[in-house]
């Protein structure tokens, strides 16, 4: 298959996925339990009288029948309007739009840090002949993967932020503010990158051309950089898209702790306020980000390793 055809096919799959995700979002909008008008009126702690409630429902257009609401919703989404938040009364597109970049920043920084750490350590482990290194790093990986990220975050805040005062505890704006949340988020993806790198490198090491290189007396690092890494790169690159999705999911907990003004903090509020337009918008946007990431990953994988095309779904 030509690269163009492959590209088109993947793009088509990505588009279909998006359509399905948006349909799911609409179902979400209408399946919610709890009266959003009431919750909005009660957010200040006062209970509204029945009159006020009725009036507010009317004002929000919540009184029209579901199919009517449905058509309106679809119309709006097609025009790039994700609807209006019930709690905040602001357009969902604005609420989430101003929060996409902080979340993306966190996600991309984490992706970079965890991939770098995972690949470097993974190569070290794979090449290491001392059983101690292998055992130590791999046990650390097992434990790290078992740590809830919020526990890591709390530890980092206390140790690095409060005790040592090296970096700000919380907030947004400067590169220093990125350090703690990225560290807390990186542990789990770094651990799985490490595992993946290790097994990819090990399987390449077992192949004939490496043995040939070794028998020629090349230095280990030359073998690693020239011969092993390029061959081991394909599965690593292929996993980036998925990993990015996992990182985005992880931001939900981390943003709350570090007062990071990303989408997650908005969606948590939305969930407890049954603010379904915001929830749906969040799923739609995050889904899109992940789909785009997967698409790009597939593309790069295809460029790096043409064999993928043959085995592609």
């Amino acid at each position: 298959m030509s690269i163009l055809g492959y590209l088109l096919r993947r793009a088509l799959v990505a588009l279909t996925t998006l359509v399905v995700v948006s349909v799911v979002c609409f179902l979400l909008v209408n399946a919610a339990r709890g009266d959003p008008a009431l919750i909005a009126l009660e957010q200040s702690g006062e209970t509204p009288t029945p009159d006020l409630l009725a009036e507010y429902r009317w004002q929000l257009g919540l009184n029209s029948p579901l199919p009517v609401q449905y058509v309106r919703w679809i119309e709006r989404v097609v025009h790039g309007d994700l609807g209006r938040s019930i709690l905040q009364r602001r357009p969902v597109a604005t609420i989430l739009g101003e929060r996409v970049w902080p979340t993306l920043q966190l996600g991309l920084a984490t992706l970079a840090v965890s991939t770098l750490a995972g690949v470097v350590l993974g190569v070290v482990v794979a090449f290491s002949r001392a059983p101690f290194v292998d055992v130590a790093i791999r046990s650390a990986v097992v434990v790290a993967a078992a740590f809830p990220s919020f526990l890591v975050a709390i530890g980092l805040i206390m140790l690095i932020g409060e005790r040592l005062r090296l970096v700000p505890v919380a907030g947004y704006g400067s590169p220093q503010h990125l350090i703690l949340p990225v560290l807390a988020l990186s542990i789990v993806p770094a651990a799985s990158t490490l595992r993946l790198t290790r097994s990819a490198v090990r399987s390449v090491l077992a192949e004939d051309f490496v043995r040939t290189a070794r028998s020629k007396g090349l230095a280990e690092w030359t073998i690693a950089v020239r011969h092993v890494l390029p061959s081991a790169a394909a599965p690593l690159i292929a996993s980036v898209g998925v990993r990015f999705g996992q990182i985005l999911a992880g931001t939900v907990v981390i943003e709350t702790i570090f007062a990071w003004p990303g989408m997650a903090t908005a969606v948590i509020t939305a969930i407890s306020g049954r603010d379904v337009p915001v929830i749906a918008g969040y799923v739609l946007i995050t889904g899109t980000l992940v789909i785009v990431a997967n698409f790009l990953t597939d593309l790069v994988t295809r460029l790096v390793d043409p064999r993928v095309a043959a085995g592609a779904r």
Binding site: T16, T17, V20, V21, V242, G245, Q246, L248, A249, G250, V252, V267, I271, I279, Y282, V283, T286, G287, V290, I291, N294
Partner: peptide
């Protein structure tokens, strides 16, 4: 399609 959206997000 489902795999495209991370698990925790689906849960949320």
């Amino acid at each position: 399609l489902l795999l495209a959206v991370p698990g925790l997000l689906v849960a949320l």
